[in-house]
Design a protein around this nucleic acid. Structure first.
Lengths: 142, 142
DNA sequence: ATGGGTGCAAATTGTTTGCAACTTA
DNA sequence: TAAGTTGCAAACAATTTGCACCCAT
C-alpha cells in the first residue's frame, strides 16, 4: 500500500503525514497517467478538496524522494510526473506532432544500462529513455 | 564547417546571418561540453562580446533547428545544450552527487530504439538516454 | 507543547515579447 | 530599401519562500 510507504518514509525523516499530504497522495494514485502540478491542483479543487498550490509543490518532491512517483519529463514548460509504485519501470515514445506518450519496456535496455555503467565505473541507479518521433496516427493523418 | 551549415539553414528560411548570430555560434563551438543560456551569455560578456540576453534566447532554438546543437537536459532550472556537429550521438551518465556528466555510446541502443519503435508502429527520430547514479569519485570520496 | 506544516501573497528565476532603431541581403 | 534583427525593459509563467497561525505527534 502506497500510504504505508509514504508514512514510513516521512517517519524516518521526522516529517508528518498531514491531511493535505494524504489527499495529494490519494489523488496522485487515483490518476492514470502523467500529470503536472497545476493539473493535479485543479483536479483536487474541482473535487472540492482543500489544498494550496504551495502544498502541492512542497509534497511532490517528497513523493519523488520516497520513490512513489517519478519526474518523467521537463520538456515544455512544466515538470511532469507519474506514479511508479506497483507500475514497473518503462520508457517513453513521445510524438512530436500530437504530444502523445506511449509507454514501452525493454529488458535489453536494463542490460545495456549495466554494461554502460560498468565501462565507466559508474553506479547507475535509474535511467530514462525518451524516443522522439512521430506516432502512427500522425503519420497517416498528415 | 558549422558556419556553412548555419548560413545555409538561415538562407533557406529567409533569415539573416547577423554578427550576433555569428558570435553566438562561434562561442557555442568554442565551448567544450554542456552549457546553458545564462552561462553562454556570461562567457561572451566576459570576453567583451556584444550580445543581449534576448539574442541568445532567440538564437539557440535556431541552432537546435539547424541540427547544430541539441537540448540535452532540462532537469534543474534551466535548459542545457551541447553542440553535436561532428561530434556523434551519445548518451549521458549523470552523477547525482557531484553533477558530473559522462558521455557514453552504445550501438546496441540504436538497435533497441528501432525495435521498440517497430513494436509500437512509431517513427522514431532521436532518443535521449540518461542514467542517473553515482560516479566513481563520489563513491570513493563519500 | 513543540516542531513541523499550511495558506497566502509576495518574491525569484528562467524565458518571452513589444517596440523603436538598426542591419543585412 | 524592405524585411528581418537587435537591445532594452516590461511581461510571463512556473516554482519558491517568508510569515503568522495551525495541527500531528
Amino acid at each position: 500500500m502506497e500510504k504505508e510507504v509514504f508514512r514510513n518514509f516521512l517517519y524516518k525523516r521526522g516529517l508528518k503525514l498531514t491531511k493535505e499530504r494524504q489527499r495529494i497522495l490519494d489523488e496522485v494514485f487515483a490518476l492514470h497517467g502523467h500529470f503536472d502540478p497545476e493539473e493535479l491542483l485543479l483536479r483536487m479543487k474541482n473535487k472540492g478538496m482543500k489544498v494550496s498550490k504551495a502544498s502541492v509543490y512542497r509534497t511532490l518532491p517528497l513523493l519523488v524522494a520516497s520513490g512513489l512517483i517519478e519526474q518523467v519529463e521537463k520538456n515544455d514548460k512544466h515538470a511532469h510526473y507519474e506514479h511508479t509504485f506497483g507500475h514497473g519501470h518503462h520508457d517513453h515514445l513521445i510524438c512530436m506532432k500530437c504530444g502523445r506518450v506511449i509507454e514501452v519496456y525493454s529488458p535489453k535496455l536494463e542490460a545495456i544500462q549495466n554494461e554502460l555503467c560498468r565501462e565507466s565505473d559508474f553506479d547507475g541507479m535509474t535511467h530514462t529513455l525518451e524516443i522522439k518521433g512521430c506516432c502512427c496516427d500522425c503519420r497517416q493523418g498528415g
